[in-house]
């Protein structure tokens, strides 16, 4: 039996919103330590890795490992029915064909209960082991989202060039070009506004703008995003959860 109670429905809402345009359905793997997901988009370019650790939940129990195949569009519709501040409890029996979803209003005496039909999903898993990292950039997630949106008006590719003291985001398109440079900054009063860049090797990588548009849908999950880049390798974009993470692995573009 699985039972997990979120202090606020908004957290699961944000997680599902961040994933559903990239993958339509995925397996939620539930263990005594928490819930994890690995899912790849249809084009095999973008991979989502989600970990919701047990400590994220107000209450959590999972007696036996269970895999729950979930249609994210359907889950999103049902979760959308609850208020952001509601308690949200998900539960499933060991051999369940449905996920039970309960919202509890914290003020009114109101409980809403839904069942989501589960799917049998046969998905390939990729072996994403520990990766070397040449450069790590941490910046406010809203700033990164704005950079991606702004650069997308120019080109379907975004080039990221990292040197010792700056990260350059560059777009070259038919109508013109754009450059945005960010530099490390420590903001003691507003640590969430700080920018850090650590570098072992300079980086010059290009990524597809449309995939970055999917990634930045996770912006509301965390005030910061950490971008890990390695020469000629997928970029890793990580949004931390209160306990766990939502990570995206994005395959780079190469010169033809």
């Amino acid at each position: 039996m699985l039972e997990g109670k979120f202090e606020e429905a908004s957290l699961l809402k944000k997680i599902v919103e961040a994933m559903k345009d990239c993958v339509s359905s995925c397996n939620f793997n539930c263990t005594e330590n928490g819930i994890s997901v690995q899912a790849v988009d249809n084009s095999r370019v973008l991979l989502i890795s989600l970990l919701i650790e047990k400590d994220t939940f107000e209450e959590y129990r999972c007696d036996r490992n269970i895999t729950l195949g979930v249609g994210l569009g359907s889950l999103s519709k049902i979760i959308g029915n609850g208020a952001n501040s509601d308690y949200l409890t998900i539960s499933a029996d060991d051999d369940a064909d449905k996920l039970n979803i309960i919202f509890e209003d914290k003020v009114k005496d109101k409980i809403s209960e839904y069942n989501l039909k589960l799917l049998d999903i046969d998905a390939d898993l990729l072996d994403v082991g520990p990766m070397d990292t040449d450069a790590t950039i941490t910046l406010p997630s809203a700033d990164f989202a704005k950079i991606c949106k702004d650069m997308k008006v120019l080109s379907e590719s975004l080039q990221i060039i990292v040197t010792k003291d700056s990260a350059l985001f560059q777009s070259v398109g038919d109508i013109g070009t754009g450059n945005i440079v960010i530099r490390p900054k420590t903001d003691i009063d507003h640590p969430e506004e700080s920018v850090t860049i650590s570098l072992d090797k300079p980086i010059d990588l290009s990524f597809g703008s449309k995939y970055l548009s999917d990634i930045i849908k996770a912006t509301s999950l965390s005030q910061k995003v950490t971008i890990k880049l390695t020469d000629q390798s997928p970029g890793v974009f990580e949004y931390k959860l209160p306990s766990g993470y939502l990570r995206f692995y994005l395959a780079p573009k190469f010169d033809e």
Binding site: L126, V128, S157, P252
Partner: peptide, 14 residues
């Protein structure tokens, strides 16, 4: 013009 690679070039299947 740049070509999009896929993750299968970097990660093996489990």
């Amino acid at each position: 013009k740049k070509a999009q690679s896929t993750l299968l070039s970097f990660f093996g299947k489990k």
